[in-house]
């Protein structure tokens, strides 16, 4: 891939951010769940590599939703 190519800028890719440990704990507490109950994203995922997330991180994904305008969801990074 050439230097300028960046997965994050493709129209199909929503914004992924790594949550800080405190934020992540807060989210899990709010939904009363453990990380494994979140949807999963693999550490080999191109976007995970691009933002440098590690297994056990929780990502906040801000999707453009046709119904809600902007929808936030979370994914748990697992080792792959």
């Amino acid at each position: 891939m050439p230097v300028e190519f960046d997965v994050r800028q493709h129209v199909l890719v929503p914004k992924h951010e790594i949550l800080s440990k405190e934020k992540a704990r807060e989210i899990l507490k709010r939904y009363k769940i453990s990380p494994h109950q979140l949807p999963i994203i693999r550490s080999s995922d191109p976007v995970v590599k691009a933002i440098g997330a590690k297994p056990d991180d929780i990502l906040r994904i801000t999707r453009n939703s046709p119904t809600a305008g902007r929808a936030i969801m979370y994914r748990y990074v697992i080792e792959e």
Partner: peptide
């Protein structure tokens, strides 16, 4: 490359990830 797409969803998954 920001707008180019394919209808092969597996290729999209491999190159751009699950969310894409």
């Amino acid at each position: 490359w920001t707008r180019t797409v394919t209808n092969n969803i597996h290729e999209i998954e491999a190159v751009l990830g699950v969310e894409a």
